[in-house]
Simulated assay, not measured.
Amino acid sequence: MANAVWKKIAAGQIDPVYLLTGLEQHIFDTTVNRLKKAMPDLDEASLIRFDLEETPVEAVIEEADTLPFLQERKLIIAGNANFLKAQDKSREKVTHNLAMLETWLANPSPTAVVVFMAPYEKLDARKRITKIMKEQATVIEAERLQGKDLIAWIQQEASSIGTYISAEDAQLLVDIAGDQLLTLATEINKMGTYLNGEGEITASVIESLVPRTPEMDVFRLTDAYVAGRVPDTISIYHDLLRNGEEPIMLTSLIASQIRLMIHVGTLRKKGYHQQQIAKTLGVHPYRVKLMMENRQIPQAERLLVILDKLAEIDYKLKSTGGKRERVLELFFMEPLRK
């Protein structure tokens, strides 16, 4: 996991070769920044970047084997290592000498730190070079974090700027701001600045400083509605209106949430587990987790009725004038039978 590798980097235990793979760009950026911080004598001339879609890997090896000028080590970022994934060779812009790379990986340069970046969902595990790279390099899988891993990451981010956040309040931060690491890191830094780099990030601090994303508020809105909590539903709805959200857009987002509930329920009945459902539907596992834990979600038949009503509301909103806000509000006030 990234946290374990980052701790070693912070302690000065820097390996010669890293492989970063996955879709969470913030983990890529954070890893590079932590390496730069752990190499204080690094200057701009000793930070070299390559795009392996445009440059053969031999150029990376040659640079790594060239002694740095007045520096102990250089840092080389080799982006888009597409030779690690399945691809159409006819579309390749460059040809990589992978045999040369295999030989070099067995004995990498002691005066360079090379970071291979493979920003892809999966690598081709059948390839010899993929197997060798995973054996020889320190691997960080930049996957989207969820559950306890996400909470632990938030707590470590808070600790890195001199503050503390409890697991409960870290979960509140996710509920409000979403699960994108870049967004979370930005909000944590903002709250750290507010606290002057010390003290605790509490629920009151989060609620005062962190804006809720429309998507997360719609998630809360839909959850309150299907649970039959009319006052909460109306309160959240009015907050969204005050924030400038339009009833037509909200109707569409609510319908999307209802469809997701139906799909999650259907796949769950088929025996799919949380990760399988998330991958099949292309949504974050955290959203699936919340839905699977919610026992107040109505049966699929009732959810389909709700979808039909939302379609009628969408038509009304697009074809009539007047106070559109009232149309959706009346829908929320209708009794929901489960």
Rank of each mutant, 00 (worst) to 15 (best):
T103R: 14
E54R: 11
L250R: 04
D169W: 01
T55N: 13
T66N: 08
W153S: 03
G199H: 05
K85R: 15
S235E: 11
S256E: 02
K37L: 10
P214D: 02
D51R: 00
Q171H: 07
D124S: 02
A38D: 07
I262W: 01
H273N: 15
Y272G: 01
V17E: 10
A45M: 15
Q276H: 06
A11G: 03
T222V: 04
D179L: 01
T21L: 13
E329M: 07
N80S: 12
R144V: 04
E312K: 09
P56C: 12
E62F: 10
E329L: 06
I313G: 04
Q136W: 00
P119R: 01
P16T: 04
K134Q: 15
Y315R: 13
L173Y: 02
R295T: 14
K93V: 10
L184P: 10
P285D: 03
A227F: 01
N97S: 09
L181M: 14
I176A: 03
L105I: 08
V305D: 12
T130F: 08
L250V: 02
N189L: 10
E72C: 04
L70V: 12
Y164A: 14
L281R: 05
Q13T: 12
G178R: 02
F69N: 04
T183H: 08
G282Y: 07
L221K: 09
T222R: 04
A99I: 08
H26Y: 14
L98K: 05
S204W: 00
L123D: 02
V205I: 15
Q71V: 11
L67A: 13
L84C: 04
E141N: 10
I306S: 10
E58R: 09
S256K: 11
N80M: 07
E312Q: 15
I254F: 06
Q136M: 11
K131M: 09
E157Y: 05
S204D: 15
T202Y: 02
L75K: 07
G244F: 02
I248E: 13
H284K: 14
A203T: 12
M191S: 07
A99P: 00
Y237N: 06
Y315T: 13
A99T: 14
D15W: 08
E62C: 01
W153D: 01
L330D: 14
Q156F: 03
A59T: 13
R212A: 15
E143N: 08
S109V: 06
A64T: 02
